[in-house]
Design a protein around this nucleic acid. Structure first.
Lengths: 161, 161
DNA sequence: AATAAGTTGCGTGCTACAACCAAACGGCGA
DNA sequence: TCGCCGTTTGGTTGTAGCACGCAACTTATT
C-alpha cells in the first residue's frame, strides 16, 4: 500500500513553490547567453542526453515537436548545437551540443549550483544528498506513471488554455 | 560548512525534471474550472494565504503586478474570488477566495494528490513524508535567500505546513 | 497507401515594461 | 495648525515578446 492521501498532500505546497522557481530563475538571468530561457533548458537536456533526434527531446520535455524545432533553430543559430543527418533515416537529423554549447551548460549549471549552495549553506551535506536522492526517485516514478498512459491520449489535447 | 558543490549539482537534474512537471500538469488538465492554468495557481496561493492584497500575491509569486491584476480579473469574473475595499487605504482591494473558489481548490488538490499517490504507490509513507519535509525546508531556504522576504502575513489563517 | 520526422503559419496564453490614475504620504511655508 | 504641492505607492491598461499547441505541408520510411 502506498502513502496516504494526506502525506501526498503534504507534497503539494513545496511542489507549488518549486514550480515558481522558474520565475526566480528568469529574474536571476539563469540562462545561456544569446538564447532565450526555454532553449537553454533544451540545450541542457541535450547535453545530458547526448546525441539524439528532435522528437526524443520533444517527447521527453512533453512539448510539441514544433516547439523543439524552433528552439533547435535558435540554438543552431547561436552555434551551441550542430545537426548531423542520420545515415539510417534521411528524415531525421541527429542533434548534438557543440563545444560552445557544452561550455555554456557547464557555466550555467555552475551558477545554479552556487546559488543553491548559498541558499542551503546551513544544511548538512548528507541531508542535501538525501533530498537529491528522494527527489530524483520521485521524479522518475512520477514521469513513468504519467508519461506512459497519459501520452497516447489524443482526445486530451485541445489547445492550451 | 554547507554542502559541497558536487552535492548541490546533484539537485540540478531532478529540479530540471520538476520544472517540466508544468507541462504534464497542463496535459492532465490540472487546473480549476473555467480559469486558465496560471490563474488557478494564483487562486491556490490565495486560498492558502488567506485574505491579502494583490501586491502581496505578486511579490510571493515573483511576477509583475500587472500579471496579478489580469488574473484577478479572470478569477473574479469566474466567481472564484471576491474583492473588498480596504477600509484603511482606499487604493487597495483585499482579495479573498469565495466558497466556490475554495471548493475548486480543494477539488484540484485532491486530484493532484491522487495523481501523485498513484505514481508513488510503491513508496513507504514515511519516505514520502521525509521528502515533503526536506523539500519544504529547502524551498523556504531558497526563497529566503533569493528574495528579501519580509514575510509579513497580516491575516495568516490556516497554517499550511 | 499509410505512417513518421520535421518545418512553417497562425492563434493564444503568460509575462514584463511603460504609461497612467488615484490615493496616501511628507514636508514646508504661512 | 492648516493647507498646498511634490513624491511615493497600489493598481490598471496598452504594447510587445516569448512559449506553446494545432493544422497543414514536405519528405522519407514502411
Amino acid at each position: 500500500m502506498g502513502p496516504t492521501a494526506e502525506t501526498c498532500a503534504e507534497l503539494l505546497q513545496p511542489l507549488r513553490a518549486l514550480l515558481g522557481l522558474k520565475q526566480v530563475a528568469l529574474q536571476k538571468r539563469l540562462e545561456a547567453e544569446n538564447v532565450p530561457y526555454a532553449a537553454s533548458g533544451l540545450l541542457t537536456e541535450l547535453v545530458h542526453r547526448g546525441e539524439c533526434r528532435a522528437s526524443d527531446l520533444a517527447h521527453h520535455r512533453v512539448v510539441d515537436a514544433s516547439v523543439v524545432s524552433r528552439q533547435v533553430g535558435q540554438l543552431e543559430s547561436a552555434g551551441l548545437i550542430s545537426r548531423r543527418p542520420d545515415p539510417a533515416d534521411k528524415r531525421v537529423s541527429l542533434l548534438r551540443a557543440t563545444t560552445d554549447g557544452e561550455r555554456a551548460v557547464s557555466a550555467l549549471e555552475a551558477r545554479k549550483a552556487e546559488w543553491i549552495g548559498e541558499a542551503l549553506r546551513d544544511w548538512d551535506d548528507a541531508e542535501v544528498h538525501e533530498l537529491a536522492r528522494l527527489l530524483d526517485s520521485a521524479m522518475r516514478d512520477i514521469r513513468r506513471h504519467t508519461i506512459q498512459d497519459g501520452d497516447c491520449d489524443p482526445v486530451n489535447r485541445e489547445g492550451n488554455r
